[in-house]
Amino acid sequence: MEGGDLGWWGVVIAVIGGAIRVSTPYLFVSLGETLTEKSGRVNLGLEGVLVMGAMSGYGTAVITGEPWLGVLVAGCAGAFLSLIHALICTLPRVNDIAVGIALFIFGTGLAFFLGKPFINPSAPRLPDLDLGWWSASPQVQSALQINLLFLIGFTLALFLAWALKNTRWGLVLRTVGDSEEAAGALGYNIAVVRILGTVAGGFLAGVGGSYLSLYFPGTWNEGLSSGQGLMAVALVIFARWDPVRCFYASLVFGGATALGPALQSVGITANYYLYGAAPYFLTLALLIYSSSPRKALEGAPGEVSISR
């Protein structure tokens, strides 16, 4: 199988490669959203945060020539936008989901506004790690060209899963998210914990955005995100607020996104719009299958409105 004609193997490799390439933004946003929701808040504005992260990261890389600095700036921009969300939600009688939608509109608007000068220039991309050196096939080599952010995301998922269970920080976060009463009784400052949870989540979502603009697909324009930030919020629910399951779910999403183009490239061209919607059909089916009318979802933070 040198180069040339891989046929159906090409589809399999494209889906695996696609899963790795496409999944990283989903992974970062869903990990961020998990942190936020574990603290008892929903931030539906991570779509806006993601887009802002993509723009600011790209802009920074264009101006300084340093893509990793772009990643950092993207995270900070995301943290800042999420701070606005967190502060508004601290006020009484404010619906966190609605604020999220507002942030979604504001964040994308701001990113489009400030991003106009960066559509044309090319930014330096984040480097690859070649994990496919052992294979003679260029397709396999390409599929296993992995970005460091993917590995960081994977490690972060493991770390967060451990930290939420085993550290004091994790305990405080979970308590605040599960029951305001209990957290109050234990003397935790609920508002501060939630602000921190939201800001940390925003940082991760911003980094996820920079992956889009600085690695794959590696450009900045106004069609860059096709709702990855919104979908990641749905993804958290079927990952049951578990960081490691977020990782699996992101891979499934990435693979499902890559399936359509891979099939079309071997000549299976009918119904491409429906293949393209595969991730959405899949998520809805899984949600219907796994939900229950009587009890909240397993793993759901008790104070989160979206789990009820």
Binding site: I88, V99, A102, L103, I105, F106, G109, L110
Partner: peptide
């Protein structure tokens, strides 16, 4: 869009 987002928030 920026104006709408601001107003909403």
């Amino acid at each position: 869009q920026v104006l709408q987002g601001l107003l909403f928030m």
